[in-house]
Design a protein around this nucleic acid. Structure first.
Lengths: 337, 337
DNA sequence: TTGTACGCGTTATCAT
DNA sequence: ATGATAACGCGTACAA
């Protein structure tokens, strides 16, 4: 069939419901109904419309649909650090599950200075929700979102504002258990490599270890600070191990633990014979044959599932009270403890 | 009268230009102009409007703005494999640069079976562009995009369709150079670990190595196939090295090379003394102290820069002829060659 | 410089 | 079951 050439030759305009209606000899409303689940429409007419729409390549314009009243199906994801293996894995999983829900994730890199401006701009879209993974958001930005009635779900660092849902790992519980395990193995001289001072997860994980040590009447022998990267773990561990005689080293995350493991090997410190080494997160690398890192699993699947559940719950009932989902880490015993 | 809305009882509605206009005692178009760069408006009035807008928390609705005529500022990114370190790093960089351009990236996971459906749904938004990173797209999907006038820019596997721009690495050149280097070092018994048969990059990289070998009057001693993952590299290398006596092993990507390196060490094969090992991509892990992998840098910064440049060029001139940007890999000599 | 009026493409309401 | 019509919120040509 001879397809009609669009009116404007300059640019290929989008096919609209109007054009489909004209081509199929029906009204605009009929076309709209043909694409609306459960709308009253003669089956034959619906089929004809679908066929014509397919020929013309018509799809309802999501911008117009979102404007009209319902949901935009747009969900922003604010990612604290797109270079972190854990955050990356988390976001990958989250994107996949959102796609399956017909929600379309807009990514915002929370790394640079422009991250605040980024959120600000994305808030111009009527988002179905905003998901925050790690990083930190300013108070008034949070207030703005809740004021707009945009559901906010935070993973990692809990945000205690009215109407904000949270998914959070019991960080302290994890390191407490790990420390108890190492104490039971006879370890006494503990070191810790922390993340940046502002990191909630790092502070919590340190806290758990200290509690276990205190209960055993011990205190931390040595401590250093990194930036959650492998390189930082490598460098700080080398400094630490050069001056201190440790028999247990706990790192605030896996990346630094892997760097520390590498440093220990280079320095001829046998792991785990001479020293125990434990990380946190259980990122994919942790189980690679050359590392086989003993660590605490910070379960991504579960966290994402909970995040999605909170999202659906809040979309169904915007007035529901804020909820905080706590996720338990658990020990994964491999070859470094 | 008392028409109850079942779903949303008292959802806080967005602040509109109309409300700002009323609060500031001006017309609605004045508000619109106040937020439009270079529009005629009295400075005092503009200031007052901005102040009132800030108080009320007003931002122009991007959905309505996009619908009205101009660009939506939405860019979809189709990611072939969100678990691949290279693709992940590429996407991170791309997201960052798009954010800086005030373009908002919608991520589509190309991994699962639903990836086609995902693109189909996202096409309901009037996208400014579609960026494809790796993976493969069906012919008619490509045709649909170009028919809609949605600029398409592909990175990795070139798509030869009218109006589709490409950024592509000279894969064969890289492995050719690497092979020549190893030949010059006296290596003669070459092995190759390839990626999935459908991977364009893997086939090209294999091709470059074969050309160099052929020029030296040699042929490939052994070959195996993995899936671009570290585990696959580890397993296939172990099988390969158990049965073959190689003095050079080239892997189609870094992840598999790192797995192979680990396997070689476990088997007591000294790298690089007994055997040379070369990867491809130069992902962040390649330079970690425990690997220090000799590899071919597939420059992400440059590829992303080129991708962005192609995007801007096409937005400025939709009728421009399709362009393919070739990016040169280059040898990064570390400790495994 | 400013206000009025129209169109963007859709869905929902209301009569038929 | 179906067609006309009213929002949705914005940018802007046009008139003043």
């Amino acid at each position: 069939m001879a397809s009609q050439i669009p009116d404007s030759p300059d640019r290929p305009r989008r096919v609209t419901a109007q054009m489909v209606a004209q081509a199929a000899g029906v009204s605009r409303s009929a076309v709209s109904r043909a694409f609306t689940e459960g709308a009253y429409l003669d089956q034959a007419k619906r089929d004809r419309i679908h066929q014509v729409a397919a020929e013309l390549g018509y799809r309802p314009n999501a911008l117009a649909a979102g404007l009209q009243g319902g949901r935009s199906h747009l969900v922003a994801i604010f990612v604290g650090n797109m270079r972190s293996p854990y955050d990356t894995a988390f976001v990958s999983q989250l994107v996949k599950e959102l796609n399956q829900l017909n929600k379309w994730p807009i990514l915002i890199d929370g790394g640079g200075d422009r991250s605040g401006a980024g959120i600000e701009e994305v808030l111009r879209y009527p988002l179905d929700a905003l998901i925050v993974r790690g990083g930190s958001m300013s108070e008034d930005l949070v207030a703005r979102c809740t004021k707009f009635g945009i559901p906010m779900i935070c993973s990692g660092r809990p945000v205690t504002a009215p109407g904000v849902d949270n998914v959070c790992c019991r960080n302290a519980l994890g390191t407490l258990q790990a420390t108890e395990l190492l104490l039971a193995k006879g370890r006494r001289r503990f070191g810790f490599i922390s993340g940046p001072g502002s990191f909630y997860s790092s502070a919590q994980r340190r806290e758990g270890m200290l509690r276990a040590l205190q209960a055993a009447g011990l205190s931390l022998v040595a401590e250093a600070q990194g930036d959650y990267s492998v390189d930082a773990g490598h460098e700080t561990a080398r400094d630490l191990l050069a001056t201190q005689n440790l028999d247990a080293l706990i790192c605030a995350n896996d990346a630094m633990a892997i760097g520390a493991l590498s440093a220990a090997r280079e320095m001829g410190i046998a792991v785990p014979d001479q020293m125990s080494l434990v990380g946190f997160d259980d990122i994919a690398m942790a189980k690679w044959p050359m590392f086989r890192l003993t660590t605490l699993r910070n379960p991504i699947d579960l966290s994402v599932t909970r995040t999605i559940a909170l999202l659906e719950r809040r979309l169904a009932n915007p007035e529901a009270p804020a909820k905080i989902e706590l996720v338990d880490p658990h020990l994964v015993l491999r070859d470094t403890h």
